[in-house]
Design a protein around this nucleic acid. Sequence first.
DNA 1: GTCTATAAAGGGATAGAC
DNA 2: GTCTATCCCTTTATAGAC
Lengths: 210, 210
Amino acid sequence: MAQADIPPSRPDAPLPAKAAQILAAAKEVFLQQGFGAASMDAIARTAGVSKATLYAHFQGKEELFARVVSGEWASHWKQETEPEAPADDPRAALESFGRRFVALLLHPEALAIYRITVGEAVRFPELGRLFFEGGPATVRRRLTAYLAAAASAGRLRVPDPALAAEQFLGMMQTPLHLRSLLDIGEGTGPREQARIIAAAVETFLAAHRT
Amino acid sequence: MAQADIPPSRPDAPLPAKAAQILAAAKEVFLQQGFGAASMDAIARTAGVSKATLYAHFQGKEELFARVVSGEWASHWKQETEPEAPADDPRAALESFGRRFVALLLHPEALAIYRITVGEAVRFPELGRLFFEGGPATVRRRLTAYLAAAASAGRLRVPDPALAAEQFLGMMQTPLHLRSLLDIGEGTGPREQARIIAAAVETFLAAHRT
DNA sequence: GTCTATAAAGGGATAGAC
DNA sequence: GTCTATCCCTTTATAGAC
């Protein structure tokens, strides 16, 4: 009706206000409770709208879930893994990269997204791919590119940059990630993080120094 | 009734036949569908019993779930990580350990247990601890003990055996595990597994050789 | 102990008024 | 577009017969 008079905002841009409000509520509920335990009632209540309104903006629970999981974290990962330290000092570059990787990895919201993505991977296979591409794959590519460049410049000896990148990330991830996911609450404090990052850098350099 | 005449089997030993049958069905359904999506109906149907029978043997869904998750995999991890190669050859020992670790890590059933444990970690915190102790912690302890011994024998230089163990495991786990959990289906075949294990051994030795 | 049948509650989704 | 009220289905769990 009058809709024709109002030029709609760009196709998939900003977001119709109320939709954003609902999406934020969905994120809160899903990340805290998981897909199965979250109810549309709870999401509507949290958003402060009725369920009918909710269904006016989104097709159903699954679409809402997909929107949350494939949400803004992809851009997070991209920003936070941009080169920062001078490329001619591998130790400094690796340490900087490691610190930012660990900070992202252990961010409470990132942990929650990881939990539900992995937990629902069987039910939502495409979501798993999206998540992997949006986060983990990005980090790997960034580090691989750096290692390849450092090798070309003769500053590191890295015959297989992609594999070396996985190794470096793994040395930091494995001691910290699962404990955090399960909330074991031991061995994941800032002190340990620093120790683990430093150790990964040392081991990596010992193996790949020119 | 006549039950008094039959000496009951040891307290928590073998298992009352039908209970085992139900537990097997529960395992199948939970591992395939997760906690939320699994229904007691499906479990009863799979077990070939009525729901009433099911509830006669187990308190409810949560108990069944806990029994499945904290099930026989703990003993699996223990058996499969026993030393196998001669202790005086670190390369052979690490390779053997690595191969068995990866095989366990990527076993379809182990992947399923990991998915649901991590996915339901918020709802069942104690289950997370149980899982960690029964699996990951065991592997870490075994490898740590081996590295400490090898260091004492002067065959490796390992100032911090526990951390070194995490690093070695991480170099194999990170390239393979998440891809398998999400069924990305790329980079996790036997060929890649072998490459990754060999590379982890080389990097580890380069950093810790005496 | 085991079954059939059912109770009791909660969930996703929608109809209809405004 | 938004709300209230409700439909309809599935789910967990149990009562009662055998």
